[in-house]
Design a protein around this nucleic acid. Structure first.
Length: 715
DNA sequence: GAGCACTGC
């Protein structure tokens, strides 16, 4: 309402109230915004850029941080007429927060209500309407949209932002968009005018001898205007994208960053944690005011460095002790994460000890110094063993650049790389795209649902290994999602592809419908789909253990998760009657804290639960409960997760039946000490050991009975 | 005896 007011009052200088009761001089505010927009580096090239978009169906825009490309280009396109005839400009982001904050900013710049001309759409939160013309969204969400509208007919332009990050979603999306573009340019056929002749979509591909066909069936009944694609990347190397889009033109837009001095060590540091400590104190004692951001690889490292800093601070002279440390990593409860944004007390220096979360996801103000040991904990995937691992590896040059850039956002800064320059030169240019290091079951299921039959032949920007594709095809076949001819099965495969879940969880829901325990399985897969539900800080481990006992089931982690969910539900239902939603949320957070439950994870699970419930109801599945018949539910777990069954070995470790690997139950599991004979699990990750998590007890004989397609072959 | 970072009509 207040923003509508801003709109109407634009010609008056009278301050008007906003919902917070503060007064805003709308005229001055709009002037300030206009001035800011004009000052952005990108403002001076608006005409040239729009010219390029008109001439090229695909354009690569390389823009450094601070160029304003994400907020400005969609507005340029709108003003240039790309939303005529009700068409929409879609802008994808890899992260939800980015989609929301940028949309808010652009709505403000346009002086419109969010959700009208400018809106955003992310999972669980759609703030768009029929009049939305500039739509920010996550790339995963656009992929989901494509399942319903394969030609992405409502969009005239799609901008893929942060493409250099090369998330799985971005890579699949680029492959899809390339096909949509070809299909749409064909659909208009001889209708082409000189202006919208598909340049690199069709003609150049022919010239380059690249296959000029799309998996999308030619829909002769429908006409589509060509789809304009803009790939935005912060990477110095636009060639990958340009090559992929048949030699598409790349333009460079200047950024606005303050200079950052880079310092290297003379020799490699044998102990980077010690080197980190020394550098922290060097900065603290010798450099001017400004906060320090340290990139570490994980929680354990952060906690031990924090302890060491606190110890050493005490050894300094009294007047040099004004140093505070603040940790931040993803599994930290949000209230504690927020501490990085709290202003540093006067005269103090803040040292932020962060994981990769501070590289892109969280921007912390006030950073003048960055310490970069050059390492990151990264996920890798061995398709042959179906084993994920978290290992510490050197970062890429692009990551090093991104990290040092964090020191130059508000003024000139310094970055201390704890390795020699010669080592920097040896780093990979960019991080290996995620699609080459993850399980592909979900990607393949999506592509199959979109009509891509030949996955191995699919034109990926970077092809995953043949063995990874085959392993995931095999897994989907074993789950019944694919037919003998490797086509999507109907209805099982089709239903699975509609559910925004890991395929193995989607299948579990379909089976649970037959087992008449869908209510329990719905809760289970929602809880399994989020980060750890239990939160056990090191210093309160015993208390946390005791709290977990209240929910625990002797059968294992799955029923325990159900108990937690139901307890929270009961708690909420009681409170919701007497309090408003916000108050009830606050009380739930308190309940979580008392019970050592991560409230962010639980809320996320509740969101997933309601979304998936809508889906399965639409599919016509029946949400029945098995009541006290725990045996039935465990049989359903066995039928669903038979690929992840393990048998106890004499030494107390387990042997995973599908791969033959030796694995161990993770210490956070309820069954860590019980060690039943036969179990199923949901996650296998190698850290210090090959750990399995989310474990439940089953009966060995159920496997041959319930999954004969797999276990009769084995014996 | 232990948890990089994101994300999904």
């Amino acid at each position: 309402m207040a923003q509508g007011g801003l709109n109407n009052a634009s010609s008056e200088r009278r301050p008007i109230p906003n919902p917070n009761g503060k007064f805003v001089d709308s005229f001055a505010r709009r002037q300030r915004i206009a001035q800011h927009r004009k000052s952005l580096p990108i403002a001076s090239v608006e005409r040239r850029l729009m010219e390029e978009v008109r001439k090229n169906d695909t354009l690569i825009i390389v823009g450094e941080t601070g160029s304003g490309k994400t907020t400005q280009i969609p507005q340029f396109l709108f003003n240039a007429g790309f939303c005529r005839e009700g068409k929409t400009i879609g802008v994808t982001q890899p992260r939800r927060v980015a989609a929301v904050t940028v949309a808010k900013r652009v709505a403000e710049e346009c002086a419109v209500d969010l959700g009208q001309k400018v809106g955003y759409s992310i999972r669980f939160d759609d703030v768009t309407s029929g009049s939305t013309r500039i739509k920010y969204m996550t790339d995963g969400l656009l992929l989901r949209e494509a399942l319903l509208d394969p030609y992405l007919a409502r969009y005239s332009v799609i901008i893929v932002d942060e493409a250099h990050e090369r998330t799985v979603h971005t890579d699949v999306l680029l492959g899809l968009l390339k096909n949509v573009q070809i299909a749409r340019s064909k659909s208009i056929g001889c209708q082409n005018t000189e202006n919208n002749k598909p340049k690199n979509g069709m003609l150049l591909e022919k010239e380059n001898g690249i296959q000029n066909s799309s998996f999308l069936k030619h829909d002769r009944g429908r006409m589509f205007p060509p789809l304009k694609l803009i790939i935005m990347s912060a990477s110095l190397d636009a060639r990958v994208f340009s090559d992929y889009f048949g030699g598409a033109k790349a333009v460079h837009v200047q950024g606005r960053q303050f200079p950052v001095d880079i310092f290297y060590t003379h020799h490699p540091e044998p102990d980077y944690l010690d080197a980190t400590l020394i550098t922290v104190f060097q900065i603290h004692l010798e450099e001017g005011p400004g906060d320090v951001l340290v990139f570490l690889t994980g929680q354990e490292e952060i906690e031990s460095v924090e302890r060491l800093i606190k110890e050493r601070v005490q050894q300094l002279p009294e007047n040099s002790r004004k140093l505070v440390t603040v940790p931040i990593f993803s599994s930290l409860p949000s209230e504690q994460q927020m501490r990085v944004f709290a202003p540093t007390p006067a005269g103090y220096r803040k040292v932020i000890l962060a994981t990769n979360i501070a590289e892109t996801s969280v921007t912390i103000p006030g950073i003048k110094y960055v310490i970069d040991p050059g390492l990151v904990k990264a996920r890798s995937y061995d398709p042959k063993k179906g084993l994920e691992s978290l290992i510490i590896v050197p970062i890429s040059k692009a990551q090093a650049l991104q990290r040092s850039g964090r020191a130059g956002r508000e003024g000139p800064g310094k970055c201390f790389r704890l390795y020699p320059e010669s080592e920097f030169e040896k780093l990979e240019d960019s991080t290996k795209p995620e699609i080459k290091r993850c399980n592909l079951a979900n990607v393949i299921l999506q592509l199959k649902a979109l009509g891509v039959d030949d996955i191995i032949g699919f034109d990926f920007i970077e092809k995953p290994s043949r063995s990874a594709i085959i392993k995931s095809l095999e897994q989907l076949f074993l789950l019944g999602a694919l037919t003998d001819e490797c086509k999507l099965s109907d209805p099982v495969g089709r239903q699975m592809s509609r559910l925004p879940l890991d395929p193995i969880y989607s299948k579990a829901l379909i089976l649970a419908n037959e087992f008449k325990c869908l209510e329990e399985m719905l809760i289970t897969v929602s809880m399994l789909s989020v980060e750890s539900i239990f939160y056990a800080p090191r210093d309160k481990l015993d208390e946390a253990r005791a709290a977990m006992k209240c929910f625990s089931s002797p059968e294992g982690d799955h029923l325990t998760l159900i108990n937690v969910y139901r307890a929270s539900n009961e708690f909420m239902e009681k409170r919701n009657l007497s309090f408003g939603k916000e108050k009830a949320d606050k009380i739930l957070r308190k309940w979580c804290k008392e019970n050592f439950i991560n409230s962010r994870s639980l809320r996320h699970a509740r969101d997933i639960h309601s979304q998936i419930r809508r889906h399965v109801e639409q599919m016509g599945l029946h949400i029945a409960s098995c009541g006290d018949d725990v045996l039935l539910f465990r049989r359903c777990l066995a039928a669903s997760f038979f690929l992840n069954a393990a048998l106890k070995q004499p030494e107390g470790t387990y042997r995973a039946l599908a791969s033959g690997q030796a694995v161990q139950i993770h210490p956070s599991s309820l069954l860590f000490q019980t060690k039943p004979e036969c179990i199923i699990y949901n996650e296998l990750v190698q850290t210090n050991h090959k750990y399995i998590r989310n474990v439940s007890r089953i009966d060995y004989l159920w496997l041959t009975e319930l999954a004969p397609q797999f276990y009769s072959l084995q014996s």
